[in-house]
Design a protein around this nucleic acid. Sequence first.
DNA 1: AGCAGGTGTTTTACCTGTAAAGAACTTTTC
DNA 2: GAAAAGTTCTTTACAGGTAAAACACCTGCT
Lengths: 214, 214
Amino acid sequence: MTADQGRPEPGEVTAGNAAPGQVAPGPRAAGRDPGTARDDDTRTARDDTVAHVVRQWRAVHPDLDTDPMEIIGRINRCAALFQQAEDAPLRRAGLSRPEFDLLGALRRTGHELTPSELARETFSSGAAVTKRLKQLTERGLVERRGDTRDRRVAHVRLTDAGRDLVDGLLPEQLAHERTVLAGLDSEGRGELATLLCVLLGRLEGRPGAARVTG
Amino acid sequence: MTADQGRPEPGEVTAGNAAPGQVAPGPRAAGRDPGTARDDDTRTARDDTVAHVVRQWRAVHPDLDTDPMEIIGRINRCAALFQQAEDAPLRRAGLSRPEFDLLGALRRTGHELTPSELARETFSSGAAVTKRLKQLTERGLVERRGDTRDRRVAHVRLTDAGRDLVDGLLPEQLAHERTVLAGLDSEGRGELATLLCVLLGRLEGRPGAARVTG
DNA sequence: AGCAGGTGTTTTACCTGTAAAGAACTTTTC
DNA sequence: GAAAAGTTCTTTACAGGTAAAACACCTGCT
């Protein structure tokens, strides 16, 4: 990911999240589930931070269905770690992620945007955008001009320097993402994208956005 | 997810603003993608905020392989939206998510923890933990006592009020997560957990953590 | 002992985000 | 054509995070 979508939280990550999520789909009671591999003894499998946390919750609340943690916890944690890793190159270029997201929004839309549009695109508040624009303008990465008919609105565009900066950083970010994703084969990646798409569909509002397989 | 993991960014997501959904994505260009299996036209699927953003990038940088965004972008966005949704009940209880994560760490481990252990468990900085503990102590949710042998260290534990608060909130969080996950069938959830586990394995350091099936 | 060096926790200075209020305009409405 | 109402953007006051330094305390070496 990269410029633009939301980060889970403002601030920075701090990295952390761990979450408890959930694990198996199964009707909590039964114990092992067949389909989903998850045994701790067999070895390697399912042994990440989240698995550990889930085990702790189960020990303390044996009655609670902790399955959701297996997914949500991992989503949160993956997001945190991805962002943490990708923040480094950004810092090197003197940008914070929110700033990069803003520049990215301008770059990908290809045209000028008003502050409110930028706020919507980057999922941040208007006040935050104002502040970021102030800094980015001072650094010569964006320029602004007032609207001719409606003097309340401003139009923001990338300078050449801003465009070059984004264009230089983007491939690097994608390359890192590709590296991590290489842990999955092509099929797995497609599957993952599809499943996340369904989830995101529900989160973004669309109720029955489940149709994926036609 | 719930207590404990981190949020992707400190700050929070700020995501706050919610994104109402995104404006209409006018699919400006047609761009089909060749290599990656995925077709957007045939059915409803693949039409979320991330899909829109990816289309924009492809239009501007046709040469760039934007595939990773389909996954990473969705992970980030899902994390942001989940947290945003789950922050509401927390606020109602007078807690921020980082605070809840801290309390959750104490609850699930079942015993006292030192500030450094709490920092590690919640993936946050020591300084941040110090500040949170100060507040939580004032509110009577945690208690601290000094170590007897090493007077530098402190031991923090939940008060009854703190324990009850977590126990009251946790089921609510899980219920919400379950609702969203209901968009996937049992098999899909298992698949998703497995794929994320592989990803997280790589992100958390383990190099060849791909073996999941034993 | 005495002290160099390491660890656990807190403090300080600063930065950035948010919510709410404010300022500057435009559009509505009577 | 004003006043009322709605927008767009900025400012203000404040909450909470971080990095780096400060503290307080242990350990090990001599």
